[in-house]
């Protein structure tokens, strides 16, 4: 089985991490050995799965593994793979000058993360024994830096191992094995931002992404009746009807603005138990999304 990569991004607060977790759970249920990756420090996903962060990936459920990648950690792993001698690796990373350098060198941490992400397909660097890797990426701006780093570096440095591998990383990221999911809420602002990001991906990288509208409210045939009720009901019941009516109106505006695009939808799940939300969404994907 060939390895698949998925990257999930979107404006903050749209449910990016939940969608990434649901995608990973769905793949795991299909029998693929799946790694769900959080970037930076262990945060929301570790909180979600009630896992305390540990070195390396850890099993969450059948076929599903969770890990957190930092730029520095990925770099260390990479250096270790090639240098082998633990003593030299330690010298390298514990050197105070090197420490500052790694923290600040432009693009280096981004490159290390994308290098690790694509290492299985490039067959280069430490092994990544999974059928699918789902990355809960940064939100819009920082996500673009992740993509720009490998390209920026190979355009700058043509020769040497760094130039060659940066080019390969970028080829994999643009290639058919990598899928991009841009998540938004059914509201004008997040949708607008998602559309702009989609255009940037097309223009700058020739990448076609999949748009996802999260928290979509479906009330079926009740919508027509609602307009009448919003007028005839009284008090708080009326307030509630107006609330729903306006929400549906916003959704219609969003649909209108997405004419010509083919977004996928995820339903609004009214549940504070987030793990349950993830399960619901992953079942929905399995039933409703044909991929």
């Amino acid at each position: 089985m060939e390895m698949n990569l998925k990257i999930v991004t979107g404006k903050g607060g749209v449910g990016k991490s939940i969608v990434a977790a649901a995608l990973a759970l769905r793949a795991a249920k299909e029998g693929k050995k799946t790694l769900l990756v959080e970037l930076g420090e262990p945060g929301f996903l570790h909180f979600l799965f009630h896992h305390s962060p540990r070195e390396g990936y850890q099993k969450v459920s059948e076929n599903l593994y969770l890990d957190c990648w930092s730029g520095e950690g990925s770099l260390r792993e990479y250096v270790h793979h090639w240098v082998r001698l633990q003593k030299v690796v330690s010298l390298f990373f514990d050197n105070p000058v090197m420490k500052s350098f790694i923290k600040t060198a432009p693009g280096l941490r981004e490159l290390a993360i994308m290098g690790k992400f694509t290492s299985g397909i490039r067959e280069w660097g430490p092994p990544l024994p999974f059928d699918e890797v789902v990355m809960d990426s940064y939100s819009t701006g920082h996500f673009l830096s992740l993509l720009r780093a490998p390209r920026g570096i190979y355009e700058m440095i043509r020769s040497g191992p760094m130039g060659v591998q940066s080019r390969r990383i970028f080829e994999v990221l643009k290639g058919p094995l990598t899928q991009y999911f841009l998540v938004a809420l059914p509201e004008q602002m997040p949708v607008q931002e998602m559309k702009e990001l989609d255009q940037t991906l097309q223009k700058e990288f020739q990448i076609s992404a999949q748009m996802v509208i999260n928290k979509w409210l479906e009330i079926g045939s009740g919508e027509e009746r609602l307009s009448q009720l919003a007028l005839s009901l009284e008090g708080q019941a009326r307030e509630f009807s107006v609330f729903i009516k306006k929400r549906l109106q916003r959704q219609r505006e969003v649909l209108e603005s997405l004419k010509g695009d083919q977004p996928l939808f995820l339903p609004l799940v009214l549940d504070m138990d987030l793990l349950h939300v993830v399960q619901t969404l992953s079942s929905y994907m399995a039933e409703q999304w044909t991929s």
Partner: peptide
Amino acid sequence: STHLALKVLQRLTGSEFMEE
């Protein structure tokens, strides 16, 4: 030790990058 670290960096990145 610093010299060694530098050599490792050069081996991993190449001389063009180091110049930049």
